[in-house]
């Protein structure tokens, strides 16, 4: 159990003629909820994209579930992808499918479950994320932004992942829904033994549900500590980040 779920060592990313990351080192333990914060453009989402194999890092080693992701063959990469779920910043729901079909889609493609069970499981995810059941038959374009976010979360949970990535999950939600979403994350962590990585600007939500927070600036992780300590951190960039609160 001592082995971290995600371990990033010396990650470097060179994008658009500049170094986004110069030396990122981060290690996330099982069952943790870790937030990655930092100013706009500091490369928070890029870290997620590197870990998710959406973008090849310029240099560095990323280990997920104890396996180096750069050396995986196609098959084991797919197995790895089955074990994590990602909630994208703009929901990224498939626009031609209803919410129910969206959630059932990964199940259909990756498992051989019977249709009625699959539907029940999908409906379970829909009610877990707090969507009304009538939303199941709607197209993403017929839902509000907040509801789309929930539907996307339900899809991220479709395969019961062990590792969940959330890219700004509460941005654009009303405060009540955002707090509900926090509770959902906490609950899922406890119930499903999830490890959660959140990229967020929502300080309220970070305070409520994270165990540790990684602050990224100058292309590095400047600090990785509980939010209480982080807010007292004297490092100039971090102090500036929290100075207006």
């Amino acid at each position: 159990m001592s082995q971290p779920v995600i371990e990033i060592k010396g990650l470097k990313n060179y994008l658009g003629n500049q170094w986004v990351h110069s030396d990122v080192n981060l290690s996330i333990e099982k069952g943790e909820i870790v937030a990655i914060i930092g100013g706009s453009g500091s490369g928070k989402t890029t870290i997620l994209r590197s870990v998710l194999m959406l973008q090849k890092p310029t240099a560095g080693k990323i280990t997920v579930f104890g396996k180096d992701i750069s050396t995986l063959n196609d098959q084991s990469a797919d197995e790895m992808r089955r074990r994590w779920g990602m909630l994208f910043q703009h929901s990224a729901l498939f626009s031609g499918m209803t919410v129910l079909e969206n959630i059932m889609f990964p199940m259909k493609e990756l498992t051989s479950l019977e249709h009625p069970f699959m539907k029940k499981l999908a409906m379970l995810k829909i009610s877990l994320v707090g969507l009304p059941k009538e939303a199941a038959s709607k197209l993403p374009s017929q839902l509000s932004g907040g509801m789309q976010r929930r539907a996307a979360a339900a899809r991220a949970l479709a395969m019961d992942p062990e590792l969940l990535f959330l890219d700004e999950p509460t941005t654009g939600l009303d405060p009540y829904s955002a707090r509900q979403f926090d509770e959902l994350i906490l609950f899922l962590r406890d119930a499903l033994d999830l490890t959660v990585v959140i990229v967020s600007h929502d300080l309220e939500s970070i305070k409520r549900c994270t165990d540790r927070v990684a602050f990224i600036g100058e292309g590095k992780i400047l600090a990785l500590e509980p939010i209480k300590d982080l807010m007292k951190n004297k490092q100039p960039l971090i102090a500036e980040y929290f100075s207006k609160f």
């Binding site: 209803t98 129910l100 379970l124 009610s127 877990l128 199941a136 609950f187 406890d190 499903l192």
Partner: peptide, 20 residues
């Protein structure tokens, strides 16, 4: 933890059988 999960799903029972 497993009990909590079972309880939660039990609570959601009526939503599961919803047919659009």
């Amino acid at each position: 933890k497993h009990q909590d999960l079972l309880k939660l799903i039990e609570e959601k029972q009526d939503a599961l059988t919803y047919t659009p």
